[in-house]
Design a protein around this nucleic acid. Structure first.
Length: 205
DNA sequence: CACCAGGAATGTA
DNA sequence: TACATTCATGGT
């Protein structure tokens, strides 16, 4: 079997780091409960341009207030109800709106379980229609919460591509295609590889 | 005290 | 299409 350069790089990271740890223990877990999938969706929004450490504080507060649930978040009367709870994750006014938009999108869609059965391309377009969800967050949600094979491109992925001089076009769509065309099309490979790239990236600034 | 972290929306040309 | 600006906290 012919192995792409990307596959070799993935194997190298696996050998170096093993299974992704920390946050990735949950994000790469298989299988996951619906509750865990909802937590990942919520975390995906809160982690936009923000340290995971600050997100964890917010997730802990949401849990204490019984708000670590898409249904509960969608049903808060005003998004500002979430301000003190998610404050630590930064941009709290925007994210309160984004989070509720996202939660209500899944509620009206019919829940996480139904979303997992949706056609990927159509679902991605619908997700991108939610105010507060851009390409990276959409792919985070699809890949890690819904087990869909949609590769995530982020700042760490770009660093990885530059470091190994893999390709020159660093636009989101181009990089996404680059990875998806060269890896076995399954969500497990995508999850672990992307998680390992982030772990690698934190060590290589 | 200055700087930064898995971004996204909005405005401008 | 391509950039610039805005939004905010907690850790280093």
């Amino acid at each position: 079997m012919v192995r792409s350069r990307l596959n070799n790089l993935y194997q190298s990271l696996r050998k170096k780091y093993g299974k992704p740890q920390g946050q990735w223990t949950l994000w790469c877990k298989r299988p996951k409960s619906i509750r865990e999938r909802e937590e990942i969706i919520i975390g995906s929004v809160l982690t936009q341009n923000t340290n995971w450490q600050n997100v964890e504080i917010a997730l802990g507060k949401l849990k204490k207030e019984n708000l670590l649930s898409l249904n509960r978040i969608c049903r808060v009367k005003k998004a500002s109800r979430l301000h003190p709870t998610i404050r630590s994750s930064g941009y709290f006014r925007s994210k309160a709106l984004y989070l509720r938009n996202t939660a209500c999108f899944f509620e009206s869609y019919g829940g996480v379980k139904k979303a997992m059965k949706a056609p990927h391309d159509d679902f991605r377009k619908e997700l991108l229609g939610v105010k507060g969800i851009g390409e990276e967050t959409a792919d985070d949600i699809m890949l890690y919460a819904l087990d869909m094979p949609s590769f995530v491109i982020d700042e760490y992925t770009r660093r990885f591509v530059k470091k190994h001089d893999l390709t020159s076009d660093l636009s989101y769509g181009s990089l996404k295609d680059y990875f998806e065309e060269r890896l076995p099309r399954n969500f497990k490979t995508y999850q672990d590889f992307h998680a390992l790239i982030v772990i690698w990236g934190k060590e290589n600034k």
